Amino acid sequence: MSAVEPTAFELIKDGVIIALTLVASLLMTIPLTGTLVRLRANYNPRGLRLDAEGNIEPHTGPVVTSFFGMLRRVRRIEGWAGLYKGTMPTILFSLVLTLFTVAVLGASMASTPGRAIPPAVAGPFGTLAFGLVSMLLFLPFAILTYRAITTPYKLPYFRPLYSLRILLTPTERKKPWMLYSTPGLLAAQCIQIVYTAFLLTALRSFLVPRPGPDDFMASVKFGIYIGVEVVSVVVICPLEVITTKLAIQRNHAAPEYNSVEQEAEDDMIDGEEYTEYSGAEEDVIGLRHEKDPYLGLVDCAKRIVDEEGWKALYRAWWLTMLGGIVSALAAGVPYVRS
């Protein structure tokens, strides 16, 4: 017996509901995501540093170590507009991700109602492959989003070429594939995907079984899986911090600069800054000196620990842990419902 085909009205209604849900979700999550990115990108060294001539150069950037402290700081210096920095790249990323998911998974999802993951992607290897492909497709969106959040310049919503001129160096605009060669960024993303999409998926298939006669043992295994998701913050949170710091480093091909340094003079940008509007004389966050960038994944982790302390690798760790708990509960929904 064939399923009843949805009418045009039902399709439009479902589309409107999805669009409204997406808008509501973005309105709530963009300020929180922007705050998290700023907190993890903020350069907050513990001691003094030396300049190019060997003289002592005290750090003058903001010292903000808490999520809500950063949220208040953004609101005070950049206002509500600053809280919604990165809106356009986030919307574009969400739309492209939705279209990609529907195009790749739509038919399989429709043929297997009630399943969170279609058969073509289910399992550790399928999830790993899907995660790696998605990462390669959407890495440029993530880089643009992080840079849009951390830039001090106002980015018009409907002037993409102007915004790209601010966010990307001339080298990156001519050779956009260089975004993939940002030292350490691709490695950090791959390690995180292997851990979350492969190892955790394998554990999920073992520890979140289908309900059977031994419901007590199933409950114990499900509790263990929640514990694994919580403990995973030890691995995932540092990778998220490192990814954030590496993503905002712009690639430059000038021979007198390192290949990952930011533009020496901001590419002659003459744009309006948020501090000009609010009257504040300070930036929301501080960044590493453009002539002393991170050179890779290991170098980034080592310098963070040496300069900012190991606690910097676990900024807003509780948000990562909360995400793991929600993921574990979502994986156990079929078990709970049954």
Rank of each mutant, 00 (worst) to 15 (best):
L20D: 06
D306K: 11
P160M: 11
L207G: 10
S327P: 04
A120Y: 01
G123A: 06
I12V: 04
M70K: 09
A19P: 10
S338V: 06
S94P: 02
M109D: 01
A254F: 14
L246P: 06
S278W: 08
L39E: 07
C237L: 04
D267E: 15
D299L: 00
L200K: 03
M1I: 08
I143V: 05
V333Q: 14
I30W: 11
I304N: 09
G309D: 11
S338A: 11
L97M: 07
M1R: 07
A41V: 05
A103D: 02
V231A: 08
E256L: 15
G131N: 12
I30P: 14
P176I: 06
R250N: 12
E78Q: 07
T98H: 00
K174P: 12
L161A: 04
R288V: 02
M88Q: 01
G309Y: 10
A41M: 10
L329S: 14
R72N: 10
T29E: 05
L26Y: 13
N251S: 08
Y162T: 01
A116G: 07
A331W: 13
P293G: 07
R72W: 06
Y274M: 07
D283K: 14
L36Q: 12
Y294W: 01
S111V: 14
D283H: 14
A188R: 06
S181H: 05
A24W: 10
N42M: 08
G126S: 01
G86R: 09
L26D: 10
R75P: 02
E172M: 11
F130H: 13
T98P: 03
R38F: 00
C237H: 08
I117V: 07
I17F: 08
N251T: 04
L95R: 00
F206L: 15
T35A: 06
L71Q: 07
T7L: 14
